[in-house]
Design a protein around this nucleic acid. Structure first.
Length: 975
RNA sequence: GCCCGGGUGGUGGAAUGGUAUACACGACGGACUUAAAAUCCGUUGCCCGAAAGGGCUUGUGGGUUCGAAUCCCACUCCGGGCACCA
């Protein structure tokens, strides 16, 4: 018997597959449905493939192979995202041209891809650094340019001082460059930008039409950060200046007690008064000296300075001061805000810091849940107080337990404010009446009022109690008179500890009030407008709409939508990227390089070092830079910045469809045939980078009628990370890196493939384990040995005599085969690769068990052995392609197993004849019984009742209910 | 602080309203061997018990249900994303 030797069979079949081209996708094949399986192409680093790659591409490969066996015309391509900094740094360090280094790395990757046995259509390989590829990246850039979506601006950008390059917003993670971790600086540079903001809404809307995991979709939505609101214009007193602010809460306008501008706001200089000038300049200088990181620190105390200017609140014409502070960001909205300290936590903090007025304009309003308002009753407004009274000696609080009509309700001391009374006076009155206490002092009155709506049924009216909240203190309870008898009847006074108060209070409004009494932040929720003149009584959206509409008529407001998303900074000051195909002419300005002169190829240079000046090293190559203007023919200079590495990857999935087309980036008819990527598997880290960028490019191309679908990817999934066995990230410095090639040498690619499928659900992060890997290797060896035995078939394992029980065993083997086919198929479809491998293990354990093996080895069951073995091999093919191919050929087949049809299961064969029924008494498991699957409810119940295991628990008890679930269980409920 | 995901044996994990712990790893015992490795067979959630058997168990507390890892409410811990975005 031959032994399983992956080191021998794997390279053998890899070569056959390459020579015969079994994995070729066929353009325009109408006889089959198409399936486009895409995995993110790798950056061809000098390190070669890592385990993360192996996981991603294996999962993609299994999906592709399964679809292929189901008869789909499958496109599973691969390429290289070859431009970028690591190769450039390598080139600088080792004095090797990046072109040469890339070619070497690509060859290495290609070899490793093959070693893993991937069914890739290599005729479609792309490389973003190939001039035949980046010609079209440049061409696509020019389409953006022509539509005004690629533009230049002199703006402060994120600059990485280590990599000496500008960065897009998406590449900065908490103030640091996501690749190298260096703190980014702001640098003023003339930059190319792509107007991704023009697609902000479409990028949100499009998510509704595709199948992305929720966390990926919400991460993109949060990143785009859409807020709807209004821009409101404030006039400056004694000045012609006006300041526009953006707010999402126009309803709080009446509470705007000051304005705040970002220190960089262009109007600051204009409005600052002589007197404040020195202070303002000092503050701006201080802010400028701070790094981005410092400005983003948590729990920073608020700082700021008054400009001396006063603005006019358009809602109430009150004069309010204009401040500058660094908590307002120039980059968002208009760079200026109206500060509403009563209803915004940051403004609240600022107002407290600088003793600025706080004006409540939103009154939180709650229905009293114990006594809610009724339909149709008239509403009457009453002013009330709720007062929490503390005994200074014990720290306990007074509560009232109500009797009679309010039975079961507990509240604080409360009552109405009579005409001519202040809330304080009313509070003292109520304390006297309800608690009969003297020597009480008011300690605090909340600056806010709240409201509770309840039904006063005896008066047939709904009441809205506008409530003042007070905290009072009683000096000494000793020697105080008792509550009068008449009050005793109505309620009992109880004293409880501070921790208990919240639990004792019954109405929601009372609870809310108690919490507010101790809270020191703004009221940020919605409510009813107060202190807002004509708008009083309106709430939420209605109030916002009314205020914006009215101000709009005076030209002082307009509805507005803002995004956190910024335009994509598209310039990089480096050599190893696509040259931006623009020529700068002193007469004609920025002129696109004519399409027939693309690509603008990277010139060969001596030095690749980036410069500190913010100029690309290309700027030093005079003979390349100096050119003539394509428009007027005069002397002109080439753009020397290159594109970010995200450029080539924004459209590579389109080039796979038509990789060698010299006339277009891809033929429209071919694009139409292949349509959307059916499944795109990639890294979670790319959610707000590559994934967002490529959706933006695709949506733009759709608008230009260059691609046939509005979205590029029908479904997206993100695979989890593979950590080292110590649970930490794999890294060279920790010395815990597992190299897939080493693993393949020891165990073979099929073992590694099954292992990455089996280790955890595909989207979960998990750690590597050498022991579990060895377990997979043992499994494949057992499968091999089993197959060898079945193939020899007829080697008698026992007597070889057929017995009467054979029929049942044969049926059980076929049943198990068909059940496994179903399970494996459904698990692959649902990407449950770990349980798919489990099922194959269970199947092989079953086939190897003594009873089954005896039958399978019996010469009289040759056919059974054959069909069982064929099913096993076919099911293994997507996951372990080499092993399956070898065994398939040993069966005498000449065609590849990978172009065979996926085995079909017979739904009737799957049905079990006997089923195990669970027996429960009061929901507790008391035993099981085996019955024919078709047994009806009555049969089940009666058989169950007769079981000894059940009898024990029914004795002397009365069965009050019986639950029978056919094929599953019988449950007796007894008393 | 806000948004998302998660908590199940010694470990990775299975089970999405019906036998919790499939499958695998590890551990323990046995067979084979001069011996070891490899391989094969068996045991393996926890507690009580000599055994038969019984009790408990899916982060914590409560609820719905004949029945809850699974559904609902509150809390807690871990991981990820965003974060002075007006």
């Amino acid at each position: 018997m031959q032994k399983y030797n992956p080191q021998e069979i794997e390279p053998k079949w890899q070569k056959v597959w390459e020579d015969t081209g079994v994995y070729r996708a066929v353009d325009g094949d109408k006889t089959r449905s198409k399936y486009y399986m895409l995995t993110e192409f790798p950056y061809p680093s000098g390190e070669g493939l890592h385990l993360g790659h192996a996981r991603e591409y294996t999962l993609g490969d299994v999906m592709a192979r399964h679809k292929r066996m189901q008869g789909y015309n499958v496109l599973y391509p691969m390429g290289y995202d070859a431009f970028g900094l690591p190769t450039e740094n390598f080139a600088i360090k080792h004095k090797i041209a990046p072109q040469t280094a890339t070619a070497r790395n690509v060859a290495n990757f290609r070899e490793q891809f093959n070693a893993l046995g991937y069914g890739i259509d290599w005729s479609r390989e792309v490389n973003t650094s190939d001039p035949n590829y980046y010609k079209w990246t440049q061409w696509l850039f020019l389409q953006f340019f022509k539509k005004g979506l690629a533009y230049q601006a002199n703006i402060p950008i994120n600059w990485c001082p280590k990599c000496k390059t500008g960065l897009a917003n998406e590449e900065v993670v908490s103030g640091r460059h996501e690749r190298c971790g260096t703190e980014v600086e702001k640098k003023l540079l003339n930059q190319w930008l792509l107007k991704i903001t023009a697609y902000a809404d479409r990028l949100i809307e499009g998510l509704k039409t595709v199948d992305y995991p929720e966390r990926i979709a919400t991460q993109q939505i949060n990143w785009i950060g859409k807020s709807e609101g209004a821009e409101i214009t404030f006039r400056i007193r004694d000045s012609k200046s006006e300041i526009g602010v953006f707010t999402t809460r126009p309803d709080t306008l009446g509470g705007a007690t000051f304005l705040v501008l970002a220190p960089e706001h262009p109007l600051v200089e204009q409005i600052t008064t002589e007197k404040q000038k020195a202070a303002v300049e000092r503050y701006i200088k201080k802010v400028q000296s701070e790094s981005e990181l410092e400005r983003q620190e948590e729990d920073r105390p608020k700082t700021g300075v008054w400009t001396g200017a006063m603005a006019v609140n358009p809602l109430n014409n009150q004069e309010i001061p204009v401040w500058i502070a660094d908590y307002v960001l120039m980059g968002y909205g208009t760079g200026a805000i109206m500060a509403v300290p009563a209803h915004d936590e940051r403004d609240f903090e600022f107002a407290q810091q600088f003793k600025l007025p706080i004006q409540q304009v939103i009154m939180p309003c709650a229905d009293d849940t114990t006594n809610p308002p009724r339909e149709g009753y008239q509403e009457v407004v009453r002013e009330t107080v709720i007062v929490h009274l503390m005994d200074k000696a014990t720290g306990k609080f007074a509560l009232l337990d109500w009797h009679e009509s309010l039975e079961g309700i507990t509240t604080a001391i409360m009552g109405g404010v009579e005409r001519g009374q202040t809330p304080e006076e009313a509070a003292l009155t109520e304390i006297k009446e309800e608690a009969a206490l003297h020597g009480v002092k008011i300690r605090k009155k909340l600056p806010w009022v709240t409201a509770a709506k309840y039904c006063a049924s005896h008066k047939s009216q709904n009441r809205k109690a506008v409530t003042h909240v007070l905290l009072a203190e009683v000096e000494n309870l000793e020697g105080q008179k008792a509550i009068t008898d008449s009050e005793q009847k109505i309620h009992t006074l109880v004293w409880v500890g501070k921790d208990e108060v919240l639990h004792r209070l019954t109405p929601d409004h009372q609870k809310m009030v108690w919490e507010q009494l101790w809270r020191t932040t703004a009221i940020t929720g919605e409510g009813e407008l107060i202190n807002s003149g004509q708008y009083n009584g309106l709430s939420g959206r209605a109030a916002s709409r009314a205020i914006v509409d009215d101000l709009h008529r005076q030209g002082q407001a307009k509805a507005s939508v803002k995004y956190k998303l910024r335009d994509w900074i598209f310039s990089r000051q480096h050599y190893w990227g696509e040259p931006i195909p623009i020529v700068h002419c002193p007469k004609c300005g920025a002129v696109p390089v004519p399409e027939d002169r693309l690509p603008v190829e990277l010139p060969k240079v001596e030095h690749y070092e980036p410069t500190d000046t913010g100029e690309s090293p290309l700027a030093a190559i005079a003979e390349w830079v100096n050119t003539e203007c394509p428009q007027c023919g005069g002397k002109a200079k080439r753009e020397t910045d290159t594109m970010p590495n995200w450029a080539g990857s924004s459209w590579y999935y389109l080039r796979y469809i038509d990789p060698h087309n010299p006339k277009a980036f891809a033929d429209y008819n071919k694009l139409k045939y292949w349509g959307m990527v059916d499944l795109y598997l990639g890294s979670m880290e790319h959610t707000t980078l590559h994934l967002l960028y490529s959706r933006f490019w695709h949506q733009f191309l759709y608008d230009q009628k260059l691609v046939p679908t509005p979205e590029p990817y029908a479904a997206r999934r993100g695979q989890g990370m593979v950590l080292a066995k110590d649970g930490r990230k794999m890294s060279k410095s920790l010395g815990n890196v597992v190299n897939p090639m080493v693993t393949i040498k020891a165990y073979g690619a099929d073992t590694l493939r099954l292992y990455v499928m089996f280790m955890a659900p595909y989207d979960e992060t998990t750690s590597w384990s050498d022991e579990r890997l060895a377990g997979i290797s043992r499994f494949l060896r057992r499968v091999w040995d089993l197959s060898q035995q079945l193939m020899q078939g007829g080697q008698p394992a026992g007597s070889g005599q057929k017995t009467g029980s054979d029929g049942a065993v044969v049926a059980s083997i076929d049943r198990m085969t068909h059940q496994t086919i179903k399970k494996v198929h459904e698990d692959i479809e649902g990407m449950r690769f770990n349980t798919m491998v489990s099922s194959l293990m269970e199947y092989s354990n079953f086939l190897g068990a003594p009873d089954t093996r005896k039958i399978l080895n019996d010469p009289g069951h040759r056919q059974l052995a054959q069909r069982t073995l064929r099913a096993l091999i076919l099911m293994l093919a997507p996951a372990a392609p080499h092993l399956a191919e070898e065994l398939w050929s040993q069966l005498g087949e000449t065609e590849s197993v990978h172009v065979q049809g996926w085995p079909k299961y017979d739904p009737e064969l799957i049905q079990e004849e006997l089923v195990e029924i669970v027996l429960q008494v009061n929901g507790k498991l008391r035993g099981t019984m085996t019955l024919p699957a078709e047994a009806d409810e009555r049969q089940l119940e009666e058989t169950a009742k007769a079981q000894e295991a059940v009898q024990r628990y029914l004795e002397g008890k009365k069965v009050i209910k019986t639950i029978v679930v056919p094929r599953k269980l019988v449950n007796f409920v007894v008393q």
